[in-house]
């Protein structure tokens, strides 16, 4: 079985994906996660999750190209450069 491990670096912080490991069952997975992601004091806590328990979604509809929905849709950098040129100040 493959398990995904999420690591919390400090109390209160979000858990972030740390990596995955192979183990025959949950007991082994927990022990291995402790060794791989915890023994150097690098984690406050870890989540050990069987990969099958994770629902992955990778289809997202955006048929009408409404790029203002997207984080890269509105380029502040371009507009800032143009504004600076108009004002006659340099980029940095």
């Amino acid at each position: 079985m493959v398990f995904e491990v999420f690591r919390q670096e400090r109390k209160g912080q979000a858990f972030q994906h740390a990596g995955s490991l192979a183990a025959p069952d949950e007991r082994f997975a927990e022990e291995y996660a402790r060794e791989f992601y915890g023994r150097r004091g690098e984690s406050q806590a870890v989540w050990v999750v069987p990969r099958e328990a994770i629902h992955e979604i990778d289809d997202f509809a955006d048929e009408l190209e409404r790029n203002y929905h997207r984080v890269d849709g509105y380029s502040l950098k371009e507009k800032l450069r143009a504004a600076r040129e108009r004002a006659g100040t340099s980029a940095s």
């Binding site: 490991l21 183990a23 291995y32 060794e35």
Partner: peptide, 10 residues
Amino acid sequence: SLEEDVAFSS
């Protein structure tokens, strides 16, 4: 296994 290698070495 690789995982066991790390665990047992530790």
